[in-house]
Amino acid sequence: MTLKLTPYITVEGRAKEAIEFYVQAIGAEVLSVATYGEMPNMPSTFTDELKSLVAHAKLKIGESELMISDAPGGSPIENGKRVTICITTNSVDKSKCIFEALRQDGQVNIPFQEEVFSAGFGDVTDKFGVTFQVYTEIEN
Rank of each mutant, 00 (worst) to 15 (best):
Q107S: 09
T84W: 06
L50Y: 03
N90Q: 12
E114S: 10
L50A: 13
L102M: 08
I110D: 11
S91H: 07
D48G: 06
D70T: 00
S64E: 09
D70H: 03
I68W: 02
P72E: 08
K81C: 11
E114R: 02
Q104V: 13
S69H: 05
N79Y: 02
K60R: 05
T47S: 03
K60G: 12
E115Q: 04
F128H: 12
V54K: 01
K96V: 10
I61W: 11
G120A: 04
D126F: 00
R82E: 11
P76I: 10
G62N: 13
V54Y: 02
K94A: 12
G80F: 14
D70P: 01
L102G: 09
A71N: 05
L53T: 07
Q107P: 04
F121K: 03
T125M: 13
K60Q: 09
L59P: 03
L66D: 13
T89G: 14
A55N: 03
D70S: 02
S95N: 08
L102H: 11
I87D: 00
D70R: 02
M67S: 09
I68A: 09
T84L: 10
I61A: 08
G129E: 09
P111A: 02
I87F: 14
K60T: 15
D93L: 03
R103S: 10
P72R: 06
D123E: 09
V116E: 02
E63Y: 12
Q113L: 10
